[in-house]
Design a protein around this nucleic acid. Structure first.
Length: 513
RNA sequence: CCUGCUGUAGCUCAGCUGGUAGAGCGCCUGACUGUGGAUCAGGAGGCCUCCGGUUCGAACCCGGACGGUGGGACCA
């Protein structure tokens, strides 16, 4: 056996962990302020409850980690009752289980499950389904074929969703929430923008060009989704005959005719740089044609702009981007995406862009997969790991967590005294630990404290005990001074202090304040 | 899955046209001192990713496998 971790997964150090926890607590606060309550669901679900992806053997399939349950369970019929054979014996099966690949699919399951009985009794009717608002965070899993840096097979998201509300105001709120949350987390107003578009517009526009086929529409949407990565002319080629990639690869085109390509490219080309919401709306008004669905989508954007403007969310925070479509097929209305506008230099000095950190939209069809009844839903999600990278790489957050106060172990005989001190510090709300390591040289203990980024070390040996004092060493200050002072004695004098035993807690507090 | 580059100490990398290994950082021991950093003196650590081939001889050349990395396809 060789100790190693599974490919595509990672361990998290205290620094990263702390940043992620802060993101979660700040975002949660904002979500709560809009009326969302916290729910959690298991990481493991029946594969068929997560959506349409059913693995047909016990291997990993289509980006989802799946396996067969070791447990035999009854097969259920569409009425929810056990399926039985002619002899009246229940069919048993090892069901397919999947690790959740996002938090939206489990939400749909929770909602559908709660409603299932009522639905069977016809006590819920379409268009009148109850409203449910929840937020949720936790790890999700994807079987990425290619494991790339900054992209893992397990990562965390923090979602909020509203189910059962059709009002486009909920979509507008989603954008405001994203903006508020990002700022609460510490992003400055200039460093990000929430982009908004509406699928209905594009859908309707394509329909007016004669594209009715849903599969065809999805193909086109996937190409348009690359708009932020490739140039307009490259995009044009992908819609048509395909193109050759710089690295030599051949990309197959969709083979559309130029009568179709031209109007699509024209529409996208009209919105290269984001301007004001009002001007985007005005341009769309002229370009979008008179398809009913497209008009409906545009009307929704007008409505969204109305609230945003009324509440003072300027273009720098939330803007319209008609080229935004997002890859997911299940979106049916407004879609949003928050992008970080910052870049940073990686370890090799190479400039890196950060890109998308949040995404979401309206998905009115998702619950229908499980319940057979259309229920409107909308929501969005912040990518916690990606955002943590932003905070670390732009230097806005420290990559190393602050450690506890370390009580140095001089002498076993003094253990009870150390314990008493530890207790006092903890009662005062100060994290601390006593050194229990095997190598007890003072040098080792302080070096341990240094690595753990401890702010303070407390030293009590026989000398201190006899005098009724403790030596308090300010490690954080020492770290600062280490570059400017080379004299050991001077360094020591400036960094540590003997205080009377009774003043210990107060003194430590004053250092850490 | 396709494609370019790459694989040498814990990490970052040197290693000329084939002659069986080097630096910096880190780590360990000690000195200054019951005291992190700095400084100084020592030390440990490598089947040169793996398997096969060419050769008297391979870290180096050739083939393959497997990792890493940069593009791309895919991403419900």
């Amino acid at each position: 056996m060789i100790p190693r971790k599974v490919r595509g997964f990672r361990d998290q150090d205290p620094g990263l962990s702390q940043i992620k926890q802060r993101i979660i607590s700040k975002a949660s606060e904002v979500y709560r302020s809009y009326g969302f309550e916290h729910w959690d669901t298991p990481v493991l679900e029946y594969a068929d409850c997560l959506g349409k992806y059913l693995p047909d053997d016990d291997t990993v399939d289509k980006g989802v980690f799946s396996f067969k349950s070791p447990e035999l369970e009854p097969v259920l019929g569409t009425d929810g009752k056990d399926l039985k054979d002619d002899a009246g014996k229940t069919y048993m099966e090892n069901h397919h289980l999947s690790l959740r690949y996002d938090l939206t699919a489990p939400l749909a399951r929770v909602y559908a499950e709660k409603l299932w009985m009522d639905f069977m009794r016809k006590q819920v009717v379409e268009g009148k389904a109850p409203m449910f608002k929840r937020f949720q965070y936790g790890p999700v899993f994807r079987y990425e074929i290619k494991v790339e840096p900054g992209r893992y097979r397990q990562f965390e998201q923090i979602d909020f969703d509203t189910v059962g509300a059709e009002d486009v105001m909920t979509d507008a709120e989603s954008c405001m929430i994203l903006s508020d949350a990002l700022e609460a987390i510490g992003l400055s107003r200039e460093s990000y923008v929430v982009k908004v578009n509406n699928r209905k517009m594009l859908s309707g526009y394509l329909r007016s060009l004669g594209i009715e086929d849903l599969a065809r529409e999805m193909e086109i949407i996937r190409v348009i989704d690359k708009a932020d990565k490739i140039s307009l002319s490259e995009l044009e080629m992908e819609l048509g005959a395909g193109r050759k990639e710089k690295s030599g690869g051949q990309i197959k085109g969709l083979g559309l005719s130029s009568e179709l390509i031209n109007p699509i490219v024209e529409l996208l080309g009209a919105f290269g740089d984001l301007s004001t919401r009002a001007s985007v709306l005005a341009d769309l008004d002229k370009l979008i044609g008179d398809d009913a669905l497209a008009r409906e989508g545009l009307a929704e954007l007008y409505r969204i702009d109305e609230v945003l403007s009324r509440l003072g969310f300027e273009e720098s925070r939330i803007n319209f981007d008609p080229t935004l479509v997002r890859g997911l097929g299940y979106y049916t209305g407004p879609v949003f995406e928050a992008v970080s506008l910052e870049s940073y230099k990686d370890a090799k000095g190479k400039k890196r862009k950060i890109g998308s950190i949040c995404g979401g939209g309206r998905y009115d069809g998702l619950v229908a997969n499980l319940l057979g009844m259309k229920v409107p839903a909308t929501g969005a999600s912040i990518g916690i790991d990606r955002l943590a990278d932003v905070l670390i790489n732009t230097g806005r957050d420290m990559a190393q967590a602050v450690g506890p106060v370390l009580i140095v172990m001089f002498d076993d005989q003094l253990m009870m005294e150390y314990q008493v001190i530890a207790r006092e510090l903890r009662s005062a709300g100060i994290a601390c630990e006593i050194f229990y390591g095997a190598r007890k040289q003072l040098k080792k203990q302080l070096s341990y404290a240094d690595k753990k980024n401890c702010p303070v070390a407390i030293l009590i040996g026989e000398d201190e005990l006899a005098k009724g004092v403790v030596t308090v060493r300010n490690l954080a200050l020492g770290k600062e001074l280490s570059s400017s002072i080379s004299d050991k004695q001077e360094w020591k004098q400036r960094v540590q202090k003997e205080v009377v035993r009774e003043d210990l807690v107060a003194h430590v507090k004053s250092i850490m304040a």
